[in-house]
């Protein structure tokens, strides 16, 4: 019961942060709020027993992500211009999508059900066999590196590819193009 109340409290704060992000027009504040959102969601992950995920979210969401957002702000602009579009169409779209998703959750097993389809199957096998097979206490590490090592290799490759993409887009490796340079290249 206590867990339910903690969850609810965190949710109220999460929704308040999300609404603040929606309404704010100073992008510096938006960045800070996104950081707060990450920290709150890390707390929620702890109450949901996902300590590894909470660790990652706190390190990535509140740390690196904020730094990158701020460096983007210094390269672009810091105020969002007011939009002239009416918010009606987006509201209708999100309401319909949300209603569809909620309709989909109605058939789902209760939160925390130990016999839901997600709990039986391959996860139960991992929990039962990893102590004899691999003998490492942290099952998350075991599944990450050993049982699903191929998956993790793909993820590492994706991280590498994304980094290479960023370097191709904005790295200082190539001589920086200025307006004068373009003309020179065209004439030569």
């Amino acid at each position: 019961m206590l867990e339910t109340f903690i969850n609810l409290g965190l949710f109220v704060m999460l929704v308040a942060t999300a609404v603040a992000i929606t309404r704010m027009r100073r992008l510096f504040g938006v960045t800070m709020m996104a950081s707060v959102f990450s920290l709150l969601s890390a707390m929620l992950f702890v109450t949901l027993d996902a300590v590894d995920v909470a660790f990652t979210e706190a390190a990535v969401g509140a740390g690196i992500s904020t730094v990158l957002m701020l460096s983007t702000l210094t390269l672009t602009s810091r105020i969002e211009k007011p939009t002239t579009r009416s918010p009606l169409v987006p509201l209708v779209v999100t309401a319909i999508t949300g209603a569809a998703i909620i309709y989909g959750t109605l058939d789902m097993p209760n939160f925390g059900d130990a016999h839901s389809p997600a709990q039986v199957g391959v996860a139960a096998r991992y929990m039962a066999e990893s102590p004899t097979d691999i003998d490492i206490p942290n099952v998350v590490t075991v599944v990450l590196a050993s049982y699903r090592g191929f998956d993790t290799m793909g993820e590492t490759a994706v991280v590498f590819t994304a980094g290479a993409g960023v370097l191709m887009l904005i790295s200082g490796l190539r001589r920086r193009r200025r307006k004068g340079d373009d003309k020179k290249e065209e004439t030569s």
């Binding site: 690196i64 730094v67 990158l68 460096s71 983007t72 702000l73 210094t74 390269l75 672009t76 602009s77 810091r78 590492t156 991280v159 590498f160 994304a162 980094g163 960023v166 370097l167 887009l169 904005i170 790295s171 200082g172």
Partner: peptide, 19 residues
């Protein structure tokens, strides 16, 4: 992961800021 994160930071920090 270390390499990618530091490389991304370098890429952003090397550009001339607009503000």
């Amino acid at each position: 992961v270390t390499g990618v994160m530091v490389a991304i930071y370098y890429a952003f920090a090397m550009r001339r800021p607009a503000i």
